[in-house]
Deep mutational scan, measured.
Amino acid sequence: KAKLLVLLYAFVATDADTICIGYHANNSTDTVDTILEKNVAVTHSVNLLEDSHNGKLCKLKGIAPLQLGKCNITGWLLGNPECDSLLPARSWSYIVETPNSENGACYPGDLIDYEELREQLSSVSSLERFEIFPKESSWPNHTFNGVTVSCSHRGKSSFYRNLLWLTKKGDSYPKLTNSYVNNKGKEVLVLWGVHHPSSSDEQQSLYSNGNAYVSVASSNYNRRFTPEIAARPKVRDQHGRMNYYWTLLEPGDTIIFEATGNLIAPWYAFALSRGFESGIITSNASMHECNTKCQTPQGAINSNLPFQNIHPVTIGECPKYVRSTKLRMVTGLRNIPSIQYRGLFGAIAGFIEGGWTGMIDGWYGYHHQNEQGSGYAADQKSTQNAINGITNKVNSVIEKMNTQFTAVGKEFNNLEKRMENLNKKVDDGFLDIWTYNAELLVLLENERTLDFHDLNVKNLYEKVKSQLKNNAKEIGNGCFEFYHKCDNECMESVRNGTYDYPKYSEESKLNR
C-alpha cells in the first residue's frame, strides 16, 4: 500500500503543469573576455578590431598615390635624371617610397634638414613645378651647363633637372645676384646647392675665386655659405661634395641669391598645395585598381571598426592602431551559463540550468507544459528593451572611439638618435595607453552587458513569482510547478501579467 502511494505521488508530481523562465541559446562559437572571465561563450557579439588588409596600394578616395619607385624624396625633388618619370607629377593622395629606393642625390652630399622637408611634404597633396630662374636668361655671365658622370643618364654625363651647376664663363666668375618674388599665391619650395671641391685647383678651375661665398636671403631665411675645400674619400667617382638646401617662400615674399662661386642654382621650384589627408609611407606593396579610405604600408583597410592592429602608420580615415589581438564586445547572452554566478555589478545569474535553442524569437521568455502540450514563448517587451539598450551602447562606444585619422611616422637624422629613441618611447607609451583603454573598455562593457542580461532574466522570474504567489511552488531551476490546472489561456495570463490569483487560489489551497 505504501509503495502504491509513492508511485501515485510521483505520477501526480510529474503530471503537474509547469512554467519556466529562460533565455535564448544557439550554436554560436563566439567568445568574449570580461573583467572576471576569459573566453566566455556568448550567443552574439561584435568585433571592434580590424585585423585584415588587402595587401595592395590603392587610390585614396579615388585619387591615385605618387609612387616614387626607384627614387626617394631627395632624388625626386632635386631632379635626379633617373627620376625623370616623376617630373610630370602634379597631385596625389599620398606618397609612396620603397624601403630600398636607390636614386637620391646622384652627386654625393646631403639634403640639409631632410627630415623636416619630409614632414612638410606629408601635408602636401599637389604642386606646380615651374621655372623659377629661366636657364637661358638668368645667368648671362656664367656657364650653366655643368654636368657630371655621377648623374649620368643613358650613358652620358648629366645633372639634376631642377638645378643648374653654374661655373665660370671664360676665365671669370663675376659676382651674381638674382631674385624671385613669389607671385603664386601659395608657398613655394625653393631648392639650391653649394659645391665643396676637393682641392684649391678644382676650386680655381671651376670658379676662378679662391674665397667664394654663397648667400641666400628671404624674410624668414638668411644664410651665408662658404665652400669647404678638403680631400675626401671618393664616392660615386667624386672627391667633391654638394650640400643641398631648401626653404619655403611665403606668398609675396622675395628670395635673393648672391654668389661669387660654388652656387648650384635653382632652375625649377614648386608651388605647394596642402592636403590634410596626405602623407608619406614606405612600402613594398604594389599598386592595383582599387579604392580605399584608409591606406597602410601593408595594404588598404576598408573598415568602419574603431581599432586596427595592422600597422601604426596610416593615411586617410583609419581606425586607431592598438596592439590588441582581440577586441570583441558582447551583444547577446551567455551561451554556457554559470550556476549560481554573481556578476561584478550585482546581477544574479545561473538559476537557469541552460539556455534554450528552441526559443528563437527572443532573448528571454517562457517554456510551459500542461495537458494541452508544451512550447516556448519569447517575452518580446523585455527582449526589445534589451536590444535597444545594447545597440545604443555599442553604437555609442564605437562612435566615441571611432575617431579616424592619419598617423604618419616621424623623421630623425643620424645625429638625432637620442631624440628618436625618446620619441619611440613616448609613442610606445601612448600606444600602451590606447591599447589598455580599449581593452579595459571592452572588458568592463562585456561584464556589464552579461550582468544586464542576467538581471533581465531574474526580473522576469520575479515578475512571475509575484503573480503566482503560493498558487505554485519554485522547483529550483527557474521553473514553477502549479498547484492547479493551468491551461493555455492561464499560461498566457502569466506571461502577459494578467494572471488571476484569486481564481485559482482555492484549487491551489486544496492541492498544497
Rank of each mutant, 00 (worst) to 15 (best):
A2N: 14
A10S: 13
V12R: 11
A13M: 12
T14E: 09
A16P: 04
I19H: 01
H24D: 00
A25I: 01
N27I: 00
S28I: 03
T31D: 00
V32A: 05
K38H: 10
V40F: 07
V46W: 08
N47T: 14
N47Y: 06
G55K: 04
G55Q: 05
L57F: 10
L57D: 01
C58K: 04
K59E: 08
L60M: 12
I63F: 08
A64G: 12
P65S: 04
G69C: 03
C71H: 04
N72G: 13
G75S: 08
L77C: 01
L77D: 03
L78V: 11
P81K: 07
C83W: 12
S85Q: 13
L87W: 15
L87V: 07
S91M: 15
W92L: 11
Y94V: 03
V96D: 06
V96C: 08
E102P: 14
G104Q: 03
C106M: 14
C106V: 01
Y107Q: 02
G109P: 07
E116M: 11
Q120L: 09
V124K: 00
V124N: 04
S125W: 04
E128F: 04
E128Q: 04
F130Q: 05
F130G: 10
F133G: 00
P134R: 11
E136Q: 07
W139I: 02
F144K: 02
N145D: 13
C151V: 04
H153I: 13
R154N: 11
F159T: 07
Y160H: 05
R161P: 03
L164S: 07
L164D: 04
W165P: 06
L166R: 01
T167S: 13
G170Y: 11
K175N: 04
N183Q: 14
G185S: 14
K186R: 15
K186M: 09
E187Y: 05
V188T: 08
G193A: 15
G193F: 04
H196M: 13
P197Q: 00
P197E: 09
S198L: 03
D201M: 08
E202H: 09
E202M: 10
Q203G: 00
Q204C: 01
S205V: 14
A212W: 00
V214G: 01
S218N: 04
S219Q: 11
S219Y: 09
N220C: 07
Y221R: 09
Y221C: 01
E228R: 09
A230K: 04
P233F: 12
K234C: 09
G240Q: 07
M242G: 01
Y245K: 00
L248A: 02
G252Y: 11
D253T: 02
I255Q: 05
I256A: 11
I256S: 09
E258A: 03
A259G: 09
T260Q: 13
T260G: 10
I264G: 00
A265C: 12
W267F: 06
W267M: 15
A271D: 02
L272F: 12
R274F: 11
G275K: 11
G279H: 07
G279I: 07
G279P: 09
I280K: 04
